[in-house]
Every structure is written in structure tokens, then in C-alpha cells.
Amino acid sequence: MINFEYVKANSAQSASEARIKNGASQFIAGGTNLVDLMKKGITAPERLIDINALPLKEISLTPKGLSIGALVPNSVAADHETVKTKYPLLAMALNAGASAQLRNMATVGGNIMQRTRCSYFYDTTMPCNKRNPGTGCSAVEGYNRMHAIFGASEQCIAVHPSDMCVALAALNATVQVSGTKGTRKIPFADFHRLPADTPQLDTNLQVGELITAVSIPAHSFNKAYYLKVRDRLSYAFALVSVAVALDVKDGMIRSAAIAMGGVAHKPWRLYEVEEFVTGKPISKELFTEAASIAMTGAKTYTHNQYKIKLGKAAIIEALTKASS
């Protein structure tokens, strides 16, 4: 059997130290992703550093915004009164993810760090640059119905599977990180990476760094909607998803935050669309045009051409639902 060492971290500092000491070690939180990856032979950590005893389970609201500890279960965050009332977009996105059982185990930190669901990444008999750099990408010319239409490279066209992260990207969240050398804050947009020539790297987190919390700034959005289109009505990853937060007054969009899931290697923020709709009155035409802008530059492969049409439809619907 592949044996591994198990240690329980009692402070963020000791967790980071343990992680650095053994390069082949990994943090484990809910384990819903990591254990699957171990069972599938995709990763084989020599040491698991259990971070569940760390005091990272708080949800707190300050005038500056909301902070959610990295170990808060997805279900707890989704059901939290403050999250539901002040950050409904996040609650909706969390509830759209996985199943009730998984959400009970999955943590906020683990959700951010979860790896792609590309079938080729999961099958160790097939080439995959993310799993095994330099072997090639099987998806580019393979079955790529679930794959990226933005920001991909010939090395990797996988998508980031998270729902929660799409809402966090839209809401300008910041990832709070601590390492052996202290703490730092990483803006959500800079947290996940595009594949480029290093698809094996999902994020800009440095070895040894631990996510301690995510913070979401206070905002003025009064409308929100998370739309997830999937192949069955629950317990399936997004074909595409759209997170929309709007500040609407008298039928006028005063500000907007929009991001998409299921289309790129990271949550895909639609800055141009936000800019385009800001200051304009709500109308069907506006949303249709916004959807077209959103899809400019999309690059599709054999099986995911539908994502352009579906992406547009989803943006129109999410904007309509959010603004109604």
C-alpha cells in the first residue's frame, strides 16, 4: 500500500512549516477532492497535514466586509444568515455546488483549491499536461464538451470546476494567506492561473502557504443571481454558470459585477460587460448585447461549440433574473 504520514497541525505556522519540510506533503481539509485524487493515483502525498483543528471556522462581518474562515464548511457558509442576506450571490453559488453531503464536508479553502474535473486529468492512462507535464493534452483533440472557451492554451483546456469561486471572483474577494514568512492577501482575480505553459499550476499560492480566510468587501449591490446550467438538475458540474451582482436604481444599472464558470481555467470575470451595462437602463436588448460582448474572443473546440450559444443564453437569463 502507499503509506503516508498523517500529522495534525495545531497552528497555521506549524502547518506551513510541515508543508515546506516535506515537499511531497499536502494539507487536507474536508478531503472530498484530495482523497479522490489519491484513490485515483493522481497524487500520492507522503504526508497529510490535517488542518481541521485550526481556528479558521469563523464567519464575521465588519464594516469593511465579510470574512469567512478557510475551514468553514460550504453548507455552513451557504446557510449563514449574513451570507444569505448580505451576500446572496455567494449563498446561491455555494448551494449550486455538488450535493448536500459533499457541501457538509467541503471547506471554503478546499473549494478554492479543488482541481479540474477534466476526464483526461482523472485517467492516469492518458496523456495530460496538468497531471504529467510534457505528456500532451488529450482534451484538445478529444472529447472536450466540458472544456474551456477562454484563456486556454494548447497545453491545457481544462476548466476550474468551482461554483463558489465564480461568485467570489465577481464579488472582488481577497484570499487571506499565511506562510512561514508571514501573511499576505491575494486578490481573487490573481489567485487562479491560466494554463499557459504551466498547466500543472492551478494557483499562485506558494508552497507552504495556507489559506486562512476569504474576505469579501462591503458592496452596494442590491440584486444578485447565480445561474448554473448543467446536464442534470443537481450534482453535476456546470456546462456554464454565471454570477451576476447589480446595483440597480430606478431601472438603471449603477454598477455591475459579472463572472462566468465552466468557461476557463479560472473563474472568468467579465469586466467589459460590467463596464458596458453600467449606467444603462435595464432592457432585453442591453442584455443581449452584453451577452455578445461577453462571448467575443471565445475559442471553441470540436465538442464545446455550444458554449458560445449557451453562454450567451445564460448571461441573458442571469441578468434578467438578477434585475427582475
Partner: peptide, 10 residues
């Protein structure tokens, strides 16, 4: 995960 059988929601 990838082979979908209907879930209750369906």
C-alpha cells in the same frame, strides 16, 4: 461524477 444517472431533483 461523469456518468449521470438521474438524481432526485430530476
Amino acid at each position: 461524477v461523469d456518468y449521470h444517472v438521474p438524481v432526485h431533483a430530476d
